[in-house]
Amino acid sequence: MADKRCGCTGIRCCLLCENRPKEIAAAKPSIQEEIWTYCAICRKAWSEFDPEQGMDHCSSHNGKYIEFNGITIIKDFVSLPEECCIITEIDKMPWKSSQSGRRKQDFGPKVNFKKQKLKTGTFSGLPPLSESIVPRMNAVEPLKSFHPVEQCHLEYVPERGSAIDPHFDDRWLWGERLVTLNLLSDSFLHFHYTQENDEAIRPKVRVPMPRRSLIVVSGDARYRWMHSIPRNAITSRRVAITYRELSEEFREGGKRYELGDMVLGIARTYQGQVVE
């Protein structure tokens, strides 16, 4: 019988299954990267930035910096009591094992990204806990027109070696802004530059995700840089609530507007159950 302790398949592995046969669990060769750390106050990424001094702007930056656009961090988006209530509601719902030591809960339409097909049959809306969160997001400047139609909860724990590989989120269905509410622990979101160049070393930018903060990824950070969360960025249990909006193709004026409008209408019922 297959080992069901985790949800890893293919080359992905967690601490529970990393001793699988090498042809399955072997990691992809890594590219040499030069690490920069993003400062949410000056909105630049610095070559010398000590995260041990805190998740905020250090008293002084040293070394070189690069411009890094497309990140908004809203600290203390929810309070400690609110965080406790949200986690309590999340843990009442069933978790499903996912790739690389994560667990997940999905609320959204069923999608075949390869064939670009969207089905709404099992989608019952965003969960009730978001009925108060979404209007609060719409009250901040970068998210005034943000209308999420998909919500995903991801749990990361160090005991399983939870991580997520560098990737781009889909562009056919999902719009420009990716929004994450980071709960239970501080962490870092890593961005990997993908443009071909003559440099032997490519830049990697670490973006701090303070506990209870809201992180918005858009623009260059969304479309020019892949993002990931490595194992060493997870020091204790972390739960991320990620919201996605529709792309222009599914919004007013787009060729699939009617379908997009229907999906948005379902999302706004806030009666959603976890999609199996």
Rank of each mutant, 00 (worst) to 15 (best):
S100H: 00
R102E: 08
R103I: 08
R103H: 12
Q105K: 03
D106S: 07
D106P: 00
G108N: 09
G108Y: 05
P109K: 02
K110Q: 12
V111P: 00
V111F: 01
V111T: 09
N112M: 06
F113I: 13
K114L: 12
K114T: 15
K115S: 12
K119Y: 13
K119V: 12
T120N: 12
G121E: 15
F123H: 03
F123V: 02
F123M: 06
S124K: 14
S124A: 06
L126H: 07
P127N: 05
L129W: 09
S130V: 05
S130D: 03
S132M: 11
S132A: 14
I133W: 04
I133E: 04
I133M: 15
V134H: 04
V134K: 10
P135V: 09
R136L: 12
R136Q: 14
A139L: 09
E141L: 07
E141W: 03
P142W: 04
P142F: 10
S145N: 14
F146Y: 15
H147C: 09
H147F: 14
P148D: 08
E150P: 02
E150C: 07
E150F: 12
H153D: 01
L154P: 00
L154H: 03
E155N: 07
Y156F: 15
V157W: 07
V157Q: 08
R160L: 04
R160S: 15
G161A: 07
G161R: 10
S162F: 06
S162E: 08
S162C: 13
I164G: 04
P166I: 06
P166A: 10
H167T: 13
H167F: 11
H167W: 13
H167C: 10
D169V: 11
R171C: 12
W172E: 11
L173N: 09
L173Q: 06
G175V: 07
G175Y: 09
V179E: 13
V179Q: 12
T180E: 03
L181S: 09
N182V: 05
N182Y: 02
L183P: 05
L183Q: 02
L184E: 14
L184V: 13
S185W: 00
D186Q: 01
D186A: 04
S187L: 02
S187H: 02
S187K: 00
F188P: 00
F188M: 11
H190E: 06
F191R: 00
F191H: 05
H192I: 13
Y193P: 00
Y193A: 11
Y193F: 14
T194V: 13
Q195H: 02
Q195Y: 03
E196Q: 04
E196W: 05
N197K: 10
D198T: 06
D198R: 04
E199W: 01
I201Y: 09
R202D: 05
R202H: 06
P203W: 00
K204M: 14
V205W: 02
V205R: 00
R206N: 11
R206V: 00
V207S: 01
V207P: 02
P208K: 03
M209A: 06
P210C: 08
P210S: 03
R211E: 04
R211L: 01
R211K: 14
R211D: 06
R212Q: 01
S213E: 04
S213L: 03
S213M: 07
L214M: 11
L214P: 08
